[in-house]
């Protein structure tokens, strides 16, 4: 049995890891909530954003946190144009086509990244001072920053969705596409904006991840499976669900790893996934937007 202080440290580590999961999952759930499709290119686009952060640092010396607004804006524009130029155009209005297009995009993006960036692991070695010590827990500053920033960005996004005209239009389209169109909302534009915001969340996640993680052409996929689980746990399309689910999954993964070992520890995530599908298929906050 572990010392309670070690268990507390495990919980803290889980919460910090969950913070970034939240951002990845929020992007996924937003795209699902509005477009009603699972974005299979999510991992690949996260990887692209991570490379953007890496090259901004490598070539221009831009700190990942300083790069945050630039990468978020760039990711939004990229996502918006990707939807306008490729996904929306090729889908011909059919959701099942979008699934295939995002899957195809994922394959193309991964292989282009391999061709242009190579398969080598790229890291950013940035020092943000000594780790914070809380009892036996050493909390690396970048992980604390990423946790706080993730929650702040989610809260700001939630506020934007609740208060702004665009946010209201997005929510209207998510609830009743035809009705929104009759009310004069430019639905294809809202689709593209929603997709852009989803990818902007990945841009933010990339800036927060890179000081402690690495990027390769396949590294984004490591976060997608866990993001899918969070979206199902929290309720598809629910922001609050993604936030609570992300932190919960982070803690479950951490304690599972601590008590059962890294391999068996992942069972906790799968068990939650199965239980939620059996007992509450709409998720913890399904329907709440």
């Amino acid at each position: 049995m572990f010392d309670p202080a070690i268990i507390l440290a495990g919980v803290l580590n889980g919460l910090l890891a969950g913070g970034v999961y939240v951002l990845v999952a929020v992007g996924l759930t937003l795209i699902y909530g509005v477009l009603h499709i699972i974005n299979f290119a999510h991992g690949s686009l996260l990887m692209l954003a991570m490379y953007a952060v890496f090259f901004l640092w490598r070539l221009l010396g831009v700190d990942p946190y300083v790069a945050l607004p630039v990468v978020i804006a760039g990711a939004f524009v990229f996502g918006y144009l990707l939807y306008r130029g490729v996904i929306g155009r090729l889908s011909h209005g059919r959701d099942e086509n979008i699934l295939l297009i995002t899957l195809g995009l994922s394959i193309v993006i991964d292989n282009l990244a391999l061709l242009f960036f190579g398969g080598d692991t790229q890291t950013i070695d940035v020092s943000y001072g000594p780790d914070l010590q809380l009892g036996v827990a050493f909390l690396p500053v970048p992980k604390v920053v990423s946790f706080a920033a993730s929650l702040l960005i989610c809260a700001a996004l939630g506020l934007y969705m609740a208060r702004s005209d665009t946010g209201k239009a997005i929510r209207a389209v998510a609830r009743e596409r035809q009705g929104a169109r009759l009310a004069g909302i430019d639905v294809p534009n809202i689709f593209a904006i929603s997709y852009g915001i989803g990818i902007a969340c990945l841009g933010a996640a990339a800036c927060l991840l890179m000081p402690t993680y690495y990027v390769t052409p396949v590294s984004g996929h490591a976060f997608v499976l866990v993001a899918f689980t969070i979206v199902v746990l929290g309720g598809m399309g629910s922001f609050l669900g993604a936030a609570v689910g992300g932190l919960l999954i982070g803690v479950v993964e951490s304690l599972g790893g601590l008590f059962l070992g890294e391999q068996l520890g992942q069972i906790g995530i799968s068990a939650i996934f199965i239980l939620i599908l059996l007992l509450k298929p709409t998720g913890l906050f399904g329907g709440a937007r």
Binding site: G10, N13, A17, S219, A222, G257, L258, E262, Q263
Partner: peptide, 18 residues
């Protein structure tokens, strides 16, 4: 043991420290 890829080694580090 750990899988490939593993996103986070904080728990393994904690276990080792304990």
């Amino acid at each position: 043991g750990h899988d490939n890829p593993t996103r986070n080694f904080d728990n393994i580090a904690l276990r080792i420290r304990s």
